[in-house]
Amino acid sequence: MGAGHGHRLFFHGHSAVHRAPAHLKVLVLVGFMLTVVATPRDWYPAFAGYLLAVVAVVLLARVPLLYVVRRMVIEVPFVVFAVLVPFIATGPRTDVLGLTVSEPGLLAAWGLLAKGTIGVMASLTLAATTEPTDVLVGLRRLRLPDLIVQIMGFMIRYLDVVTADLGRMMVSMRSRGMNPRSPRSWPTLARTLGALFIRSYERGERVHLAMLSRGYTGQLP
């Protein structure tokens, strides 16, 4: 049951980007994205510059570009929406490739896609170059309330335990003939979630007692 080091998106490395303090990286990410979001969407060269900046950081971190690109599938549902915007938006119509679309809608779709894509790439870069424990230390240094950081820490620490617990339940149900693709399995899946809640809650109680017995007083060292 040994869990891997780091989380799923982390890409092990020793570059300057990996070594940079996490609180700086979080601040840079938030500042950068606020700038991107505030940029008017018809400043096309600016977006090329932003994209170049993100790609430069990815290359500097020696993370393969394909590693980041492949994990951008998380954006897909949103891309579908952005593609629909020119068709449903209001405003003067224009012809593109034989389709009649709204002109401001087209511009809006471009803005959504450009900003969303840069956002996902920038967030992936942070996730790929920063270990979870470093992010926690960084967030504490950014004066995030201590309790929030502790809760995040416990969530990250037990995330793989809880998801593996769920995985084992799913495997055992499948081996008993449950078909998770059928809507008929909704009650079974829901009961599984109920059992998972009880297991997680009771694990939390055990963890708390174990911490008390080691002298926990509400502060983590």
């Binding site: 502790q150 995330l159 809880v162 708390h208």
Partner: peptide, 15 residues
């Protein structure tokens, strides 16, 4: 109990 309990419940919601 806030930190461990909320952490585990958060992990449950994520799962």
């Amino acid at each position: 109990r806030t930190a461990p309990m909320a952490g585990l419940v958060a992990a449950f919601i994520f799962a």
